[in-house]
Each structure stands twice: as structure tokens, then as C-alpha cells.
Amino acid sequence: MSFKIDTLKITPEILSLIAEIDEFKGAWKALGTLAPERLSALRRVATIESVGSSTRIEGSTLSDRDVERLLSNLDIKTFDTRDEQEVVGYAKVMETVFSNFEHIDLTENHIKQFHRDLLAFSSKVERHRGEYKTHPNHVSAFDAEGKEVGVIFETASPFDTPHLMQELIAWTNDAFEEKHLHPLLIVTIFIVVFLEIHPFSDGNGRLSRILTTLLLLRAGYIYVPYSSLESVIEQSKDSYYLALRRTQGTIRTDDPEWNTWVTFFLHSLQQHKRRLEKKIESERIMIGTLPELSLEILELVKERGRITIGEVVTLIGANRNTAKKHLRDLVAANHLAQHGTGKGTWYSRT
């Protein structure tokens, strides 16, 4: 094997992070007893956040609201901008992972298929879909005019990429089977080595986050789709890249420095699960205290992004005065935000 794992130092901080995440994993069966439609709504919101964040990390300019509008109109067969193409491709692969993770082993064929589907709507990279790179793709720095000013990190050569990917996949599958290393550490190491290889000409960052979700789900962390890990990464993007670079540059040396990346990644998983804990608690409080009509209104707002009094009356069949009262109460309780006045009034989630 061309990288060493024995230099990973299992510190008290790493043990504490793993214990906290695993405790939540074990408690999820009790936490996840919300009604199916509530869980479905949580997953839908998290998916929109994940798609938006993962594509923005790579340079997309679409907001979560833009992503939501785009994904609600997927009967369109062509998408004009690269941002739209990347969003739709990412969303479709994520749904494949969520629906079929139990049947998707970690293999070269599956990774290449994910890459092909990820870029399915990107016509400019058609010949690169699902195929390892044929030209170097070192990570470079650029100035304000877009001119390359230097190489930050040298990735694997096109010649070395196939055998390095075979080695990484074999190591990962063996590590899961042998169980000498904690599953979270296996996932963490897989991701940083995958990005160090940078096996494809385009889409490596997005694909790495899809593979993260796949491996976590297959390792039993089935709560992952209900909160956005990609959003956590986006909000700490500078630290993400710094941790990656510090570890990546040492992977093929005699003394790899794993701990910077491992600690960052576990902290991200900790933040991800804490966000979900808060969401679940909010849902429980809401369900325990709100009238049925108020819950229906909130569900509509989650589905549509915004709502008017007229839409509440039409879609739920509520009396107009009753709808107004429930909307006022939801605004007063900080569940909804009111925008505009009079006939132009509309409401969104806070």
C-alpha cells in the first residue's frame, strides 16, 4: 500500500468526537420517531441545502431558493447554465444514494457511474464523464483576473490514477470488513486520499461529498440525509481547504499527517448531528404545542418556500379569518416571518 495509516494518532479529542457521534447514531431510532411526512420534510430541506452548498463550494452562485425552484421543475430536459447543470446532476445522484445505498458497494464501476450521472447534464465535459483523467489536474491558485499564479497541490498523474484508485477501494473495503479501524476513521481517510488522487478531470469535490454520504449510510449512520453535512462544510470552507492541504501533501511520505484532516472532518460530523438534534427537538416541540391547521400551514411553507393567505384557503380549505389567525400566531411564535402588507402579504420560514 502506498500510504501508511499507523501514523494516525488516536487522541482523546478524536475518541470523544467518535463517542458523541456514535451515541447519536444509537439514539436515532428513538429520535427518528417523527411522523413520516415530518421526516420527509426534514430530508427535503436538507437535500436542498446539501445540493446548494456542495455546488457553491465549487463555484456555483445559486442560492438555496434558486436550487429549490430548479428542483421543483425537473421536467425540463435541458439546463442553460453550468450552475443549473451541476445542481440537477448532484441532486439526482444524491437521490440514487438515498434510495439504494444498501445495494451500492464501493467499486470502481459504481464510482465511475456516479461521476457519469453527476455530469449527465454538462455537455462541455461529455467525453470526460465516468472516465479517469487523461491530463494532469493539479490544484492551482489564481489571481483576480483568473490567471494561474502557482500550483498549490500536485495530484496523482493520469498514469498512476487507475492503480491508486484500485488500491484505495481495496483498502477501504478490507478495512470495513476487518473492523480494526473505526468506520468513521475509514470514511475520513478514504475521502482525503480520494481527493489527493483527484481521479477525474472535473467534479472530484462534489463526487467526494456524495461518496461520503454513501459510506456513512452503509456504515449505519442512517440519519445523515436529514441534515446537511455539505452546509457545514460550506460554512467552514477555509478550514476545510486548509485541513485538506495539510494532510494531502504528506499522504505519500513516510510520515503522513492524518490528524489535521481527521480532526476537522469529525468536528464537521459533530456539527452536522448537533444541527439535526436541534431540528428534531424543534419538530417535537412544534408537534406537541401547535394546532393541526398550523402544522399543515408549516408543511405547506416547507414544500413551497413561501405562502399567502389565499393559498392557505385554497390548498387547505381553511376559513379565511381562521387562516389569518393561525398565520398571526405562527409569526408571533417565530415559526414564520411575514413579508409585505395588505394583499401583497406572504410568509416564509424563519
Rank of each mutant, 00 (worst) to 15 (best):
H180L: 09
H180D: 12
L181A: 01
H182C: 08
L184Y: 05
L185H: 08
I186E: 12
V187K: 04
T188V: 11
I189C: 10
F190N: 14
I191E: 10
I191Y: 02
V193L: 15
L195K: 11
E196F: 02
E196C: 08
E196I: 00
P199K: 10
S201E: 13
D202L: 10
D202K: 06
G203Q: 08
G203M: 09
R206V: 10
R209Q: 06
L211I: 13
T213L: 12
T213M: 09
L214F: 05
L215N: 04
L215A: 05
L216E: 07
A219H: 05
A219C: 01
Y221H: 05
Y221G: 04
Y223V: 05
V224G: 02
V224A: 12
V224E: 14
P225T: 11
S227G: 10
S228K: 03
E230V: 04
V232T: 11
I233P: 03
I233D: 02
S236Y: 01
S236V: 03
S236W: 01
S239P: 00
S239C: 00
Y241C: 10
Y241K: 08
Y241S: 03
L242D: 15
A243K: 04
A243N: 07
R246I: 03
T247K: 02
G249D: 05
T250I: 07
T250A: 12
I251M: 10
R252Y: 12
R252P: 00
T253M: 04
T253I: 08
T253Y: 07
D254N: 13
D254C: 01
D255S: 15
P256W: 12
W258M: 06
W258H: 09
W258L: 12
N259L: 10
N259K: 10
N259D: 14
N259P: 07
N259E: 14
T260N: 12
T260C: 01
T260G: 07
T260H: 10
W261Y: 07
W261A: 04
V262Y: 04
V262M: 03
F264H: 09
L266C: 13
H267S: 08
H267E: 13
H267P: 00
S268C: 14
L269V: 00
L269Q: 08
Q270E: 14
Q271S: 11
K273F: 11
R274D: 15
R275L: 12
R275W: 04
L276N: 12
L276W: 13
K279R: 15
I280K: 14
S282Q: 15
S282M: 14
E283G: 01
M286P: 01
M286Y: 00
G288V: 00
T289A: 14
T289F: 09
L290E: 15
P291M: 06
P291I: 07
P291C: 06
E292F: 09
L293Q: 06
L293W: 01
S294Q: 13
L295P: 02
I297Y: 11
L298D: 07
E299Y: 07
E299H: 09
L300I: 06
V301S: 05
V301Q: 04
